[in-house]
């Protein structure tokens, strides 16, 4: 290994040696007849290809340094995030893709711009070297949170339909009747971020900080970046989840504030 730009270089040959780790995992799978050989191989191949592609794309974008390209890439990241959420949420009777896309895009754009432009002071604020990695972390984090929250909201509204309708029958509005369910869904989405805040530095060392330290950066600067990122992740997750859950909850009720999302039945329709 040679030292380049502050970090010790990894050659392609050295990188090839790390495939032994995957082979070791494959042997364990074979030995235990776990049937994980193929997914392990596919996963490893995808990991290498996707990261290599990402490396070339980032280098290209850094060289171009165009705001349009940066925001277009950002939009593509959000589109993929929403697609993944759509795949992970089992309920599709209530449309949530468009609210999720526009909310994620606006919230992340706002928070990422605040962080890169105001706190880090990057010039210009969309400087790809800062904007894209930070946006990537925010998109990934909020994607998980939103998926968890939506799944919880839909599943609770279906399984607790009788409780919601009991409250509606006593004069509650749709918002009042689903308040506990909404709060539980919000908590389900927020808990991973809150746990990360509590565990960072004690239970785990975050990837970004590790990367900065490995690349020869002063650990104190890496820590300051990490704190900014952690706070940014919590804020963007909270905002995104609250807004999207609010819109989607409204869509789960009809014009008479009746619950239209019910187990084993499509929304009631009269002829």
């Amino acid at each position: 290994m040679q030292m380049t730009t502050g970090a010790l270089d990894i050659s392609w040959v050295e990188l090839g040696v790390t495939s032994l780790f995957i082979i070791a995992a494959g042997i364990i799978s074979l030995w235990g007849r776990l049937g994980l050989g193929r997914p392990l191989l596919t996963g490893a191949a995808r990991c290498v290809l996707q990261l290599a592609a990402m490396g070339y794309v980032l280098r290209f974008i850094f060289d171009l340094s165009s705001a349009w390209i940066v925001f277009s890439l950002f939009a593509v990241m959000v589109v993929f995030a929403v697609r993944i959420i759509r795949g992970n949420v089992s309920e599709h009777a209530i449309p949530f893709v468009m609210p999720a896309f526009f909310t994620m895009f606006s919230v992340y754009a706002l928070i990422s711009c605040m962080v890169t432009g105001v706190i880090i002071g990057a010039e210009p604020f969309w400087h790809p070297q800062y904007f894209i990695p930070l946006a990537g972390m925010v998109v990934g984090n909020s994607m998980t949170a939103l998926g968890l929250s939506l799944d919880r909201l839909f599943s609770d509204l279906k399984t607790k339909k009788d409780t919601v309708e009991m409250m509606l029958c006593l004069g509650a509005t749709a918002k009042e009747a689903s308040r506990d369910i909404f709060n539980d869904a919000l908590k389900a989405g927020m808990m991973p971020s809150i746990n990360s805040l509590a565990g960072v530095g004690l239970v785990f060392i975050p990837g970004m900080m590790t990367g900065q330290i490995l690349s020869g950066e002063d650990p104190m600067l890496a820590i300051r970046y990490q704190i900014v990122v952690m706070f940014m992740l919590v804020a963007s997750t909270a905002l995104t989840v609250v807004i999207v859950l609010g819109i989607v909850r409204r869509r789960c009720f009809g014009p008479a504030q009746q619950l239209i999302l019910t187990p084993g039945k499509s929304p009631g329709k009269s002829n």
């Binding site: 029958c169 504030q257 619950l259 009631g268 009269s270």
Partner: peptide, 9 residues
């Protein structure tokens, strides 16, 4: 009768 379901026609 209390609009937990909605009639159309």
């Amino acid at each position: 009768m209390n609009r937990l379901e909605e009639s159309g026609d």
